[in-house]
Structures are given as structure tokens and as C-alpha cells.
């Protein structure tokens, strides 16, 4: 028994820390956990994906097999589709921050960023349920884009798709994030939790 989760985004968005905290929560709740971070030469501005595997029994390898993804948490929609084309299957569910971050080639006018409509329908094709949210706006409203990762994790907990308690997670934020951001991180996590039922169409 296990759950395969990928947390993906663009380097610098805080998705690696999100994966680490989620894995800590899994471990504390008595699951076996592995996290494999996949990134290339650059961590800033490159595609980054963390494979988080929660399971009972023997240790699973740090990479999720192709087309075996249960839950996708994407901080950026293009990265969501990139992951889904490799790992998505009929039962995959996804929470996606629908705020594009343009790759350098798009900024320089050499490539096109996919049209929102096309991107959404491709994503929906590869998932059973998808919630597009605007976590960037929530983070900005809270005054610091750095808490985007906590909003996303809040939305994941709020979805009810993972067997972990939001209350325990708040104590992990308390003990594992920097003292300056701790308070704001918890606020952001709670805002994420509440995204359910408003613009989270789960």
C-alpha cells in the first residue's frame, strides 16, 4: 500500500522544502518514506520535481515508475503537464497553481508558452480530477511570495487526498521552518486549507 506524490515547480519556488516537510509529516505518522529530488545543472529557474513516496512495508525506490502517479502538486502549469506526460495515469489527481512562469526561451521570444486552454485540456486529459488554484495571489496577499509552498501544501491537505492531519503539519512548520517565516508559513498553510470549496474544484 502506498501513495506516489510528485511536487513540481520551477527552481526557487520552494517545492523541494515542501517535499521535505511533507515527507517529515509522513514519517511522523508512521509511514515509510522516500523522497527523490530530480533537478539538473541549475536549481534556480530550472524544472524541479520531488518524488515523495509514502508506503507501508518495504522501502520503495526514490523514483516513481512511469505512469504510476497518484497525486501531483504543481507550482506551475507547464511543469504540471511536463510531469503528467511521463507519470500521469487515469487515476492521477492534481492540484495546480495556475500561474505561468515563463522559461527563458519564451521571455526572449524564441518559444511560445502554450495557450491556457490547450494546457488545461491536456492536463485534464491525463488526470481524473484537477484543481486549478491561484496560490501565487494568496502568497502575495500575505505579503511574501516565499510562502507559496505553504499555500500549496495547505491546498493538498485541504483536498483530503492524503491520510495526514493538518494539525500535525502545523507543528512541523513550527519546528522545521525559519523563525522569521514561521508565523506567516502557518497563516499561508491555513489559507491554503481553506481554498477548498472556493476556487478549488475538487
Amino acid at each position: 500500500m502506498g501513495i506516489n506524490i510528485i511536487i513540481t515547480g520551477v527552481g526557487g519556488q520552494g517545492n523541494v522544502l515542501a517535499a521535505k516537510l511533507l515527507a517529515t509529516a509522513g514519517l511522523e505518522a508512521g509511514w515509510e518514506v522516500t523522497v527523490g529530488d530530480v533537478f539538473g545543472l541549475t536549481q534556480r529557474g530550472g524544472s524541479v520535481a520531488s518524488h515523495v513516496r509514502l508506503f507501508k512495508g518495504y522501502l520503495l525506490p526514490p523514483l516513481i515508475p512511469c505512469r504510476s502517479l497518484d497525486i501531483l502538486v504543481a507550482f506551475e502549469p507547464l511543469e504540471a503537464l511536463r510531469i503528467l506526460t511521463q507519470f500521469g495515469r487515469e487515476t492521477t489527481r492534481a492540484i495546480i497553481n495556475d500561474q505561468p512562469v515563463w522559461p527563458i526561451g519564451v521571455q526572449a521570444g524564441r518559444f511560445q508558452y502554450p495557450e491556457a486552454q490547450e494546457l488545461h485540456s491536456a492536463i485534464e486529459n491525463l488526470t481524473s480530477k484537477t484543481a486549478f488554484i491561484n496560490a501565487t495571489r494568496v502568497a502575495k496577499e500575505l505579503g511574501n511570495i516565499q510562502v507559496l509552498n505553504m499555500v500549496m501544501l495547505g491546498a493538498l491537505y485541504g483536498s483530503g487526498w492524503i491520510p495526514l492531519s493538518p494539525r500535525t503539519f502545523e507543528s512541523i512548520i513550527q519546528s522545521s521552518t525559519s523563525s522569521q517565516l514561521r508565523g506567516l508559513n502557518i497563516k499561508a498553510f491555513r489559507r491554503g486549507l481553506k481554498l477548498k470549496g472556493s476556487n478549488l474544484h475538487i
Binding site: G40, L41, C66, T85, Q86, P103, G105, Q112, P114, L119
Partner: peptide, 16 residues
């Protein structure tokens, strides 16, 4: 593998 023929092209994020 997923049939991506109907999907938009996905621009990469090369190091910079």
C-alpha cells in the same frame, strides 16, 4: 507512453 501528439510543445527550462 502518453500520446502527446495533440499536446502543445513544452518549452524547456535550460540552465542559465
Amino acid at each position: 507512453p502518453v500520446d502527446t501528439s495533440d499536446f502543445p510543445a513544452l518549452p524547456g527550462r535550460p540552465p542559465n
